[in-house]
């Protein structure tokens, strides 16, 4: 049995750290793990994804259309862009956070208003105010650990010792705040 996690967002949002923690923990827990990312030109403010697959034996590092068990979106609109990759019976964890893209910034389009409604109408979606939670905890950058917590709860992976993995993969001075963010995210997804 292979499971697939799709992390999406905008270049520079910290999907990389989340997928690093995720793959490290899964490997330590004894799973076979593969992870795929696209680098290069698409990074410059473009839409980005990290694809993580784990199980007894993983062949493809790439998640196919309709193949993700969970879609974790660090930005609201990106959740819809990547929706075709989610298994219709899968879950979506969505950050209630907007990053306007170039046509929106230039005033040529408006940021779409119906994103969350559409998501909720189509899949089991958990909307998390990760930015707000991170800010309240005192470090806006811990947003990705809030989402990571929601992902762990959503995938039923709470048995893995994530707190140790997190402690080993974030800057020393941010360990406490990131652990808090992680726990808060778990609680959100358990709702």
């Amino acid at each position: 049995m292979v499971r697939s996690i799709l992390l999406v967002g905008v270049g520079g949002q910290g999907t990389l750290l989340a997928s690093k923690i995720l793959t490290t923990g899964l490997m330590q827990a004894g799973y076979d793990v593969k992870m795929s990312e696209i680098h290069g030109m698409s990074q410059r403010g473009g839409s980005v994804s990290s694809q993580v697959r784990y199980g007894d034996k993983v062949e493809s590092p790439v998640i196919e259309i309709g193949g993700a068990d969970i879609l974790v979106s660090f930005e609201k609109m990106e959740a819809l862009r990547w929706l075709p990759y989610l298994n219709p019976k899968g879950k979506a964890v969505v950050n209630d956070f907007e990053l306007p893209s170039a046509p929106i910034l230039a005033g040529k389009s408006l940021y779409p208003k119906g994103v969350l409604d559409e998501l909720r109408s189509k899949v089991a979606a958990t909307v998390v105010d990760a930015a707000g939670i991170a800010k309240r905890l005192g470090n806006a950058r811990s947003m990705n650990l809030v989402l990571f917590g929601a992902l762990v709860a959503g995938m039923g992976l709470a048995d893995i010792d994530w707190e140790t993995v997190i402690s080993e993969n974030v800057k020393k001075e941010t360990v406490e705040i990131n652990l808090k963010a992680f726990r808060e995210g778990m609680a959100q997804a358990r709702g």
Binding site: G11, G46, E64, G66, L80, P84, Y85, S101, A102, P112
Partner: peptide, 16 residues
Amino acid sequence: LPHLDASAENVVARPP
């Protein structure tokens, strides 16, 4: 595989 599509009006392009 079976999958869902998003409506075009809710997804604005994000070019580099």
